[in-house]
Design a protein around this nucleic acid. Structure first.
Lengths: 334, 334
DNA sequence: TGGTTATAGTAAAACGTTTTACTACACCAA
DNA sequence: TTGGTGTAGTAAAACGTTTTACTATAACCA
């Protein structure tokens, strides 16, 4: 049962392929096709269930109505939620999203970009990693819209949407200080992206501004793709060996490992020991006591990404790149 | 900066397009192209960075090396994790995955299937919903491999991989009974798929086999896409109005809502009140006390799905459909 | 009347591949 | 010399669209 082609429709309707194509693409009026023919052809299309072959279409037009979305790890709830929101919004505007995970591997990211490129996606939404700057520049020079989100790359001039990581981090520390905390730790990762360094800088700056000393002993940088057991041991070490009364986790999965440690070593969260986690997670609300978190405005981020993208797609001329920074929200729970 | 085509390579190498194509596709030997020419062409390809246009390739060959994955909701951690595992495994075998969420809407599912069809994906992995039986039969009659997972459709003869939901549910209730529980509730959804009805049947059968009465008052069926507030109120009602000493949640998101209720009404989980949740979630391990769960073997499911799929893809003849049922594991935590 | 304009539509090239059927030549055996 | 076989390679069709440039007829008008 081979699929119907535009040719079959043309034969059935006894008109030319061109005419059918014009009708399908809503150009019938401007190409002066008569009402009668339009109706006849549309009827045949409906009855036969003909669907244009998108591959052929893409080959001819060079675009696909598909947007490629590249994230670090689709199984991380932050990315899964953002992906889902973006998918919904794009879908409503007639675009499909295809997504894939980089696993923080430069190689895989490059391969994905290449795959998307050879499949002629119309635009890219990327949560980037260091090392793919050159690839992104290539996309830009192909005149394809690119939006980075969550993480920015310092030395590429491109659209970016993300939360204000510096401020969020700064506020968290401030809030610890207001509670009278003196020994505030930071558990972060060693991924070298702006978003992570900003969180780090916010931590440092807030400490200094509050008259507290910054001490390297209180900062733990976890290697980004080691197994969880190692992570847990390192955090355990930190908690056991340092006098700490508060800790900021720079990502939600680090916080989850951290909470596991606290459970294991039976350290209670409360007035003696406070925790704030970056990026909310179901587990934090449910936790007893509730875990305070920095919530990124997922909905806003997704909406802004899509809006920027569609602007670019519908504009003939290249629009200036924008950097949109959206405030994050500190949610205090207990 | 237009992309290079096979023609450009042919000109540069001073050979025909055909020759280049044979070399790219590893058919040079069998088509008796000389070693010298092969080397020359390969060198030019490497130096110029030429990448074949996959769209043109798909148009010509009718396939794409892409597998379409359709799930209910990619932001649900069960699906996100499965998707990620499948993606990894497919990737290693040279296939790309593109995924999309149905949101439990028949219409959206059909549109997605259509989109994948017109993009000529080579195979489908679908966590189906009732109402798309006909669409799946269409795919099968197109001779495209289809694997259902997580949920089966009773009246379509197709490959299926899933956990043993009946047994898992049965065992959970058994374990409650062993603990001396008498009033065991079930919170489930009203989605009409085998996997959910099996969980329900396991619950019922186990009660009867243990000599406990089955009572409709103890079963709450939540409408599948209502907002969480309503769900929480309904569960609160159940917990407040019925004498219950144990509850099985049929999905992880229901369990999360349920745990929120328990927190709100300050009901402690312990010897008086036991909980088991279907499908593990980070929040359950972290919860105090830990929440017992039924773990589906994600890794096994993903591996089996991919294996079945690749068998079909590489076989010339149509293989018989298989139904693979994988045992789930009851994890008792406290 | 002839020239312009509008209406209604079509033929054919192009997008970048893969693949079938072919050519051209050399070599060898009978 | 003929014919067969192997080697090395190519021309051209095909996949299913979109789009440009074209034709043919009717209508209008001065």
């Amino acid at each position: 049962m081979k699929a119907l082609s535009i040719k079959d429709i043309a034969i059935k309707a006894n008109v030319s392929i061109t005419t059918v194509s014009f009708i399908i693409n809503g150009k019938a009026k401007e190409k002066s096709i008569s009402e009668a023919v339009i109706e006849k052809v549309e009827k045949i299309i409906k009855e036969s269930g003909y669907k244009p072959n998108q591959i052929a279409r893409s080959l001819r037009t060079g675009n696909s109505n598909i947007i490629g979305l590249i994230v670090e790890d689709i199984s991380n709830s932050f990315f899964a939620k953002i992906a889902r929101l973006i998918e919904d919004k794009a879908y409503k505007r007639g675009y499909k999203i295809i997504y894939s995970s980089t696993e923080n591997s430069v190689e895989k990211a490059q391969e994905l970009i290449n795959m998307f490129k050879t499949r002629k996606v119309d635009a890219y939404i990327i949560s980037p990693i260091k090392g793919i700057e050159e690839d992104i520049r290539m996309l830009l020079s192909d005149d394809k819209p690119v939006i980075l989100f969550d993480r920015n790359l310092a030395d590429v001039n491109v659209n970016y949407v993300g939360a204000n990581h510096f401020n969020a981090s700064y506020q968290s520390i401030e809030s610890f200080v207001e509670q009278g905390k003196k020994n505030i730790a930071l558990v972060t990762t060693d991924i070298d992206v702006e978003q992570i360094t900003e969180r780090f800088d916010g931590y440092k700056k807030a400490l200094l501004d509050s008259g507290l000393a910054y001490s390297e002993e209180l900062v733990l940088k976890i290697h980004f793709n080691q197994d969880e057991e190692t992570t847990i041991n390192q955090i355990k070490n930190l908690f056991n060996n340092q006098k700490i009364d508060a800790v900021l986790f720079a990502t939600n999965y680090l916080a989850i490992s951290g909470l596991k440690v606290l459970k294991q070593i039976k350290k209670e969260i409360g007035s003696e020991f406070s925790v704030i986690a970056y990026d909310d997670h179901e587990a934090f609300e449910l936790h007893t006591p509730g875990i305070s978190t920095i919530q990124q405005p997922l909905e806003d981020i997704a909406e802004t990404v899509i809006k920027l993208l569609l602007n670019q797609l519908s504009s003939k001329t290249k629009l200036p790149n924008q950097q949109v920074i959206i405030p994050a929200k500190l949610i205090i729970r207990d």
